[in-house]
Design a protein around this nucleic acid. Sequence first.
RNA 1: GGGGUGGUAGCUCAGUUGGUCAGAGCCCCGGACUCAUAAUCCGGUCGUCGUCGGUUCGAGCCCGACCCACCCUACCA
Length: 524
Amino acid sequence: MKAFYLTTPIYYVNDAPHIGHAYTTTAGDVLTRWHRQRGEAVWFLTGTDEHGQKVMRTAEANGVEPQVWADKLVESAWLPVLDTIDARNDDFIRTTQPRHMERVQRFLQRLKDAGHIYEGNYVGPYCVGCEEFKLEGDLIEVDGAKCCPIHGRPVESVEETNYFFRLSAYGEALIKHYQEHPEAVRPQSAYNEVMSFLKQGLNDLSISRSSFDWGIEVPWDPSQVVYVWFDALLNYATAVGLDDPAGSEGAEKFAATWPADVHLVGKDILRFHAVIWPAMLMAAGVDLPKCVFAHGWLLVGGEKMSKSKLTGIAPAQIIDHFGSDAFRYYFLRAIQFGADGSFSWEDMSARYTAELANGLGNLASRAAAMVGKYSGGVLQARHDYTEADQVIINKLSEVAAVADERVTELDFAGGIGAVKELIDAVNLYVTEQEPWKVAKDQAGMPRVETILYVICEALRGIAVLYNPLMPKAMAELWRQLGAEAVLGALDAQDVRNAGTWGQLPAGSVITKGAVLFPRLEEAE
RNA sequence: GGGGUGGUAGCUCAGUUGGUCAGAGCCCCGGACUCAUAAUCCGGUCGUCGUCGGUUCGAGCCCGACCCACCCUACCA
């Protein structure tokens, strides 16, 4: 069975990760955890992009070799941030690894041999920040100098003999492909932009550089290195064994993984992924990825967070205070995936307190306390259900179905919102059923037992559905429910079966463990 | 210049194929309750759904024009 294969962009090692990077990786992690909990084989890839002039110059500025610089950033920043956000990736590719470089060279030679690459001459303004040549019309004027509109720094005029990829040959084929597969670029706004761009016609793409040497050597011309984007895009395929000989381990991996099901990207790099990348694959006769999903930007104070400008917030700044679960919850819950979203410390604090501490955390707390107080800490068998009980039973079933539908469509906010409705319904249920009053009369105990069962069984479903999103807190909830002994590991619970009522058995030992989401001190 | 996206309560945002669609959460005020992380639950205040026209029995939802924000892209040089 082919794995569900998801990639994040490989991140440029020019600087340290900020929450924009972590946002992408978090979304990928939640989605892949969800698919794992549907019982599917999954492959989740992330990594770093390490070649190019900008990295070379940054390294020079720091007085070290590019590889040393890249190693340092990967070890000290990019790998640790995965632990910080609690991401469970299957692989981490670096574009300086032999496995990548060798396969890139092989791929390039193959394209060359098939006539998709030719030698040409290119003269034009070049922005070091963007790693690309600019069109005159794109430039802006600053103090009399032509500058890159993105970086606001002067462009350099560069003339090179380069190798060109016949990108222009694929415009029509791409348009046709996307007309037949409108789901291949999402959301709709991204699809529209790509189509609009394609319809204007494509130019061939210069895919090599001779003015510097920090890159993968062009196999037939050692004086040139591969253009960093051409190099970088290939990581998604080289990481799983692109073009390895039949029968090899790499070939088997490729067959079991490719094509990618989802390439998660920020909307700023959509075009590379939805135009250049599929054209490269078409030229090579390799299957195209099923979907490129472009998410929006995190806005801080109304401005885009940027790796070029220094407005980035490090994930640890937030996670040290709120924890990784809350980080994951907040960004996927508060922002419609695909749209831009504004982040503020105040908003995050408000949602943490209202939805996690007061909502879910407190519900788990009152449930465990009542089972302890009225049933000696052991979940009792339920008795006849009332209409009120049935409302919760139905709600869990409905919510589980909606959540699966939404999350698999990458509508994280929709999926989380559905589960939150259940949490609110159960809190209401507890208040209305008033088990503490029913328990005052010994004759009411059977009813109390049923109420407590309904609450705990609903929490069981919530734990399963929220586990991909908040694995640490849900693991604790699973322990408190005493569920593992009978139901097995939380990670092994199928999300598609989460809505089936009555799984948590009578006799489960419910304990009041650590507070799931402690109230946090006000921080500035 | 062309194209895209968005402009809905103080804040963050939902609003399917036009007919309780004027909403949710947060905030604020009042009340109920005590199992619980001073949590929970109920009630209440706030909007001419960017502007102006049009289609329709009826429009945040359709059409046209315009304004604002952001994004993509061209020409001229």
